[in-house]
Design a protein around this nucleic acid. Structure first.
Lengths: 129, 129
DNA sequence: CTTGACCTTCCTCTCACTGGAAGCCTCATA
DNA sequence: TATGAGGCTTCCAGTGAGAGGAAGGTCAAG
């Protein structure tokens, strides 16, 4: 398989696949003409990476997850711990964003949104009490 | 005021303040010795920027907000629109993160987290159906 | 005179790609 | 056989919003 094939089959852009090779996540062979030559195993890895990234795992997490995946003597506790840490980061981010959202909603609601210059949003940003 | 003073009074790191000057958000004067020399007005702007950034507005949004703030003939509708667009981006991000969180929670819950290698998290990432 | 706390500029690094340029390779068609 | 399109290669630069650090100037106190 050439890169275009794995790209469409994995859903990852070719650029991303080259990048993953660059940073050592995959190691496709090369054909005589210099083209990358992917096997099913590579495609499988790429799909794995795509799903892990879609769950928000960092590249370094993905590297660890792949290593665990390929280690038959892994302990599921290690995977779970990684996932739990990631989960708590996500939950923290959600909380941050929700706080922003709540403040913004209030501000937006209180702003008339007309032709006049008076604006509670700007007033709040400028430090009114 | 030197940069250390505005830094502690605005809560922004000196690095950030220099960066904001670099990209043209503020234009402090210079003393004879080459030090940046901030007035109350600059401090006010920095505090404004700090609050806008804390609400998640991008730097370019902040630039626009500052311009609106300083424009006495602004229409509050322009501010409101900017805030609404930002709000919907935040809401979209929250939704994305919540979807990740829900999936991760399920996976984490179903994983024994013991010494054995069997792991539903890896199984899911590897594309099991 | 020295010490330590500030301040300056400049350069590099982050993260996970994305875009683009310049140049091969391959295949189908005229 | 020439040509053109499309796919592949490498390499370089840019993204956002700063953070980290080196090398060196400045200032007040002891």
């Amino acid at each position: 398989m050439n890169i275009g094939d794995v790209s469409s089959r994995s859903g990852l852009p070719a650029k991303t696949i080259r990048y993953y090779e660059d940073i050592g996540l995959i190691r496709p062979h090369r054909s005589a003409n210099g083209y990358r030559c992917f096997e099913e195993k590579d495609l499988h890895k790429l799909a794995f990476l795509g799903r892990a990234r879609a769950l928000g795992f960092t590249i370094e997490d993905c590297r660890t997850l792949l290593a665990l995946y390929e280690d038959d003597s892994r302990a599921s506790a290690d995977v779970k711990q990684l996932a739990l840490e990631h989960l708590s980061k996500i939950e923290a981010k959600i909380a941050d964003l929700q706080a922003m959202r709540d403040t913004l909603r209030e501000l937006v609601t209180s702003c008339a949104g007309d032709n006049r210059p008076d604006c509670p949003i700007l007033k709040d940003l400028s430090g009114a009490e």
